[in-house]
Write a protein that binds this DNA or RNA. Structure first.
Lengths: 88, 88
DNA sequence: TTTCAGTTGGGTAATTAGGGAC
DNA sequence: TTTGTCCTAATTACCCAACTGA
């Protein structure tokens, strides 16, 4: 039932990936990473998902080369629960 | 039908959203989340409503009523249904 | 009754969202 | 194509002291 994983802030995820928080926002906007929104509109990311991405398990399609195009998943599904209404 | 109308404290809701208890209080004050007040002035939140917000299914209703500003109504709807998904 | 964790309220800094361009 | 930086506005976080709830 409960996902049991903590939620990370954009700044946290950005620090983990060594990128700009804005980049993390773009990932979420592009549906490359699941995101949960607070009633205020801010995003929160699941630590389990971020970790999986960090380990490169985000996609087992490690065929290397230009294997991965822009096919990272249409919806921003965080997993079990329904996708978030990506509408701002 | 047990919808799980357990009441959660601001601290519980804050931990769920990874935000500050103060922020949860602001949500209630802004009418973004229903709240029940104790005679002493403390707030309590319905678990069912909080969960709906967490899963991002705040409201997939077809109400194409977008373009609505943030409602500043001190409604504090105690009703069963989630308050609103209105953002800015 | 007292104790104590949690909540409330106001005020001020820090973070985040969104857009648009380089 | 992706990422970083610019701007403004909104949301959130932390500071304090005082009150409530169990």
């Amino acid at each position: 039932m409960d996902t049991g994983d903590r939620l990370l802030t954009p700044g946290e995820v950005a620090a983990l990936f060594r990128v700009d928080p804005k980049t993390v926002t773009r990932w979420a906007a592009a549906g490359r990473i699941g995101s949960i929104r607070t009633p205020g509109g801010h995003r929160r990311f699941r630590e389990s998902e971020v970790r999986a991405l960090l380990e490169g398990e985000g996609m087992l399609d490690e065929t290397d080369d230009m294997g991965r195009s822009r096919n990272a998943g249409p919806a921003a599904s965080t997993g079990p629960g329904p996708a978030n209404a990506g509408m701002y």
